[in-house]
Nucleic acid binder design. Structure first.
Length: 487
RNA sequence: GGCGGGUUGGCGGAGAGGUUACGCAGCGGAUUGCAAAUCCGUGAAGACCGGUUCGAUUCCGGUACCCGCCUCCA
């Protein structure tokens, strides 16, 4: 069996993965707060842990891996959006507006992540469906002295957990010394964090022993992971920015609630995304969502490829240049594996790269090797192991056909599935160009051929002409409107 | 201020204490009405200063610069 090695943030070392129960390998990843479209940075953990999910399924069997990724659907930003809509005159109740907002955001999230070729996790719990478990866990922490209630709030007593700060390598005293937070009056200690907080009448709330209120952010993940994966499980993932305080707090809550258990054995953190060398932020004007890129015509598969080129533990830079290069490579590979039956299993070299702490860049290098060797079946199957060259992601590419100079069309044609209409004119124009070229080759007057070609190029269509015939390849920025002059 | 990550050829980006990463771009050639694509070939690196070693880009220490977290942003 393939030995998977992963870098464990908790021990700061690469370790062999030894599942608690190989018949049910369990992974939890912190999911999105569903208040708006996912931005490009949100895609990174999704793709990273999707590759790990695929690898675990490959090694332990698809039915022996449980992957949980939550939706945080109770949050002040969600409330703010709902209140904004209400202020704009929407007659519905706040609860209805919140429900609508989270429902539509979850729908967007699924659509966008599907477009990136990410498999859906085994379970996608919503925080609001686990309020009871959270209340139970908080009550237990109060009983054991790890938490206290004050003025409708419940706070975790950080000093009661000696190992607090272990994951992120911080000491409580250092943090207090450098802290910039003002201390709320209901806190015993500045480091204590909220488990439960009171809700006003105009905020969503649930009845609890401490009054009507809502849970703090950190308790959600502790309660859901325990309910769905147990008190000890194999892998916990998320962005490096969650390492502190979110993951530190999760560990404190869960280990204090269940001192006999380990909680997560391996902690994995992906590094952040940058855009053209800078942090993505609204103030820098380089903030964009996954949907923005898809709408610009950049295929999800291209986005995925760009992400996989950088190891998850390193900061990654998104650039237009990378997207262009990735698209060129994928075009080449897709041409190579078209109509190819995948090999029964991925190339061992690809699996070996992935098993070495998810070395996706190394895996892609191996794929280049397979492509260079012309091993189409292995390329297709191996690429699928990292979620590339899958049939689900093939829609972006128009499968070009060659219109021969003899006037007869050859080969397969048209895009598969959705989006076909965009390319409806392609065959007709290709034929027109092929005809013009046939007569030009006789008359030696290429004026008309060059005219058609330059219009196509300006519309974002690559034109290839050879003695086999004419081939048109619309690129991702193809604009059908610019072809009107040819109609 | 505290904690953490990074610095590899023109660009992107891996592994390995001694032997070609890989891709893109470039250059030379084949092919082509032009061009593209394709094919063949090819040069190019390891921030800086020390140390360990027969030998380090790879291990250790320091310096510089960049980035992130410490604020419910993945």
């Amino acid at each position: 069996m393939t030995r998977i090695r992963l870098y464990n943030t908790k021990t700061r070392a690469k370790e062999d993965v030894a599942p608690i129960d190989p018949a049910n390998v369990r992974m939890y990843v912190c999911g999105p707060t569903v208040y708006d479209r996912a931005h490009l940075g949100n895609a990174r953990p999704v793709i990273v842990f999707d590759v790990l999910f695929r690898l675990l399924r490959h090694v332990y069997g698809p039915e022996h891996v449980t992957y949980v990724r939550n939706f945080t659907d109770v949050d002040d930003k969600i409330n703010a959006e709902a209140q904004r809509r209400k202020a704009l005159g929407d007659p519905r109740s706040l609860e209805e507006l919140i429900r609508e907002r989270t429902e539509e955001t979850i729908g967007w999230y699924h659509a966008d992540m599907d477009a990136l070729g990410a498999l859906r996790p085994t379970l996608e719990p919503r925080a609001t469906d686990y309020i009871g478990q959270m209340i139970g866990m908080i009550a237990g922490l109060i009983r054991s002295g790890h938490a206290y209630a004050k003025d409708g709030h419940v706070l975790f007593r950080v000093r009661s957990y000696a190992e607090y700060g272990r994951l992120s390598g911080r000491s409580v005293d250092d943090m207090i010394a450098g802290a910039r937070v003002e201390v709320a009056p209901f806190k015993e200690d500045p480091m204590d964090f909220v488990l439960w907080k009171p809700s006003d009448a105009d905020l969503p709330g649930w009845e609890s022993p401490w009054g009507r209120g809502r849970p703090g952010w950190h308790i959600e993940c502790s309660a859901m992971s325990e309910e769905l994966l147990g008190t000890s499980f194999d892998i916990h993932g998320g962005g490096i920015d969650l390492q502190f305080p979110h993951h530190e707090n999760e560990i404190a809550q869960s280990r204090c609630a269940h001192p006999e258990a380990d909680f997560a054995k391996v902690w994995m953190h992906n590094e952040m995304l940058q855009v053209e060398g800078k942090k993505m932020s609204k103030s820098l004007g380089n903030f964009f969502t996954v949907r923005d890129l898809l709408d610009k015509g950049i295929p999800g598969e291209v986005i995925r490829f760009v992400f996989l080129q950088t190891h998850y533990s390193k900061p990654m830079d998104w650039t237009e240049e990378k997207a262009r290069a990735a698209e060129a490579t994928l075009r080449k590979w897709r041409g190579l594996v078209a109509d190819t039956e995948p090999a029964p299993s991925p190339a061992p070299s690809v699996i070996a790269a992935l098993a070495d702490d998810l070395n996706t860049a190394g895996a892609i290098a191996e794929l280049h090797g397979l492509a260079g060797a012309g091993d189409r079946a292995a390329l297709k199957r191996s690429a699928e192991a990292v979620g590339l060259l899958t049939d689900e992601l093939s829609r972006w590419e128009w499968q070009p056909r060659i219109v021969a100079a003899t006037g007869r069309a050859e080969g397969r044609s048209t895009a598969r599935g959705v989006g076909e209409s965009r390319f409806d004119c392609m065959d007709r124009i290709a034929q027109k160009l092929a005809d013009a070229r046939t007569s030009a080759l006789r008359s030696k007057d290429f004026t008309e051929v060059d005219r058609i070609k330059s219009i196509l190029v300006s519309a974002g269509v690559e034109v290839r002409m050879s003695k086999e015939g004419v081939q048109l390849l619309p690129s991702s920025n193809f604009d059908p409107a610019k072809l009107e002059a040819l109609e």
